[in-house]
Amino acid sequence: MGSTTIMNNIPNLVALLIFPAGLFLLLCGLFYEWADRKLLAQLQNRIGPRWFQPLADIIKLLAKEEVIPDGVNPTLFIGLPIIALAGGLTAALYVPIVGLLPSYGLPGDLIITIYLLSLLTLCLGLAGSNTLDRFSLVGATRTLTQLFSYEAPFMLALLGPAFVARSWQISVITTFTNNRWLILSQPLGFLVAVIALMGKLELPPFDAPEAETEIVAGALTEYSGRGLALFRLGKGVALVIGLTLIASFYLGGVTNPFLFFVKTLTLLLVVVALQALLTRLRIDQTVGLWWRYGTLLVLAQWLVTIVWHGVAT
């Protein structure tokens, strides 16, 4: 019985550990991290890292000693990075990575994906508050504050396409959006989704939670070695998933690997340009921006969409 169970589960195991989630996604995340850093460097008149730099960083970090500081809960300290990365990798199973159909699907998996992505931020915040370091504590407070500001607009922005596709299942939505450029009918939703993704990944100008000139590395100040490596991998994975979701929902779908890379990398270019152009916001300015403009914009988008649908049908 044992051998048949294993045989039956091989496709599942491959999907979980190698492709599309697992190993492939980790490498993909590192590649996107490199693309982000390289493009930003080019826009800022710098040379930027070589293509294998993120991978080299991860290998170096994994080989290093992980220092567990005094006064932390060791289980949480070691466990949180693993949960964060696991959340990201699990989310990938429901997303059309490389233009393939999602490995798994169930009604309402959009909500699951969004919450699995938030797990990363939540783990970051908990990891920061777990230590006694003051920079970590301030960073964790800011991380969680930021989470509450962009999360609602991000979710509403992704539910816009779900509304017109009449489904909360990602595979159904992506089938619907194939060759339908929702960016044209829901431009505000697209704008909010892209900017919220930057907030989620704590990219400039939303990098107040890890502003090095104020609080060193924020919530991750005490992390070294494996923990830091896992968190960084997690961020890379979240970047890929976020870009995939937005590209497949708003940019006419990603039905093959070519379209996938073209569309997500174009989206990344937009994100990089915004990073280069804008000055870091203070945390109060971030919150103000989201609740004063971001949420209102996406609600206006919803209103327009609903009214339009009512008129059209």
Binding site: L43, Q44, P205, T213, A276, L277, L278, T279
Partner: peptide, 15 residues
Amino acid sequence: AHEAGFDTLFMYIWR
């Protein structure tokens, strides 16, 4: 500019 988190200005002006 770097302290304000505006690294682009930092890089350009140092160039």
